[in-house]
Amino acid sequence: MGNAENKFDDMPEWLSKSENYIPLSDKDTFVNKSILSVFKVLSRIKKQDSAGGARSQINVSLHVFCTFVLILLVSLTRSFIFVLIVNVWLLSVLSMTDTIRLVKILKMSMGVTLFTAVVMLPAFISGNTYSSITITTKVFATITAMGLLSHSTEWSTLTRALKRFYIPDIFIFILDITIKYIYMLGEFSLNMFYALKLRSVGKNRSKYSSMAGIAGTVFLQSKEMAEDMYHAMECRGFTGEYHINDKSKFKWRDYRSIGITAGFFILFIYFGRM
């Protein structure tokens, strides 16, 4: 004991002994779950970054428009057959996409659909069969359509495409900043969760204050980042105006998707009469 102290002048003696520690169990699933959900978002953003321009075969503005029309028609229709036809169409498009993307989209839409099915179960049992089944299938169609849109286009082109719908440039600019900072702050908080996990070697009696420390630090960090960002932008001559150029031309594929949307519109009216 004394030996150790003499040898390493200012080292406390407990540091040169190995710890004889048997950890207590603790419930910290919340850390793992937070890690998982932040991680998912990060990898989602990273993935779409590598999605590549080759993916977006059709004009993005048009794709957004067609998806919106489709979702609107599905929501408006009272015909179950129309919903079925849309679903079959979406399934066939889905089956043409590559596997990794397919699984991602399917996971998303199945999750919400199952949730809806559970929510609708009491209504189904008590005889409200028509609406519960229609709503569940409608939900599947909507989420799948959205998934196909967001998984097949780069997000930067997607946000840019919004310009065509008279969404102000400044809003699109904020959207782009948000996505970027979700990634940066997400990575920061992911590391904070890792640090919390690594240092949670026993029972944490104040889980809430640890979480609050992380959230609070992320907030302060985000504030600092925002300040840095507008200083940097000011230096580059930013005055609060932001202009986006959207130069995309129609290709034959675009006429095809217009045709398909028109086809759905006709079907919608046809089945709407019945």
Partner: peptide
């Protein structure tokens, strides 16, 4: 106006 990035970062948070 120049502090607009704050809104985006707030949204990210």
């Amino acid at each position: 106006k120049v502090k607009i990035p704050l809104l985006g970062v707030g949204a990210a948070f």
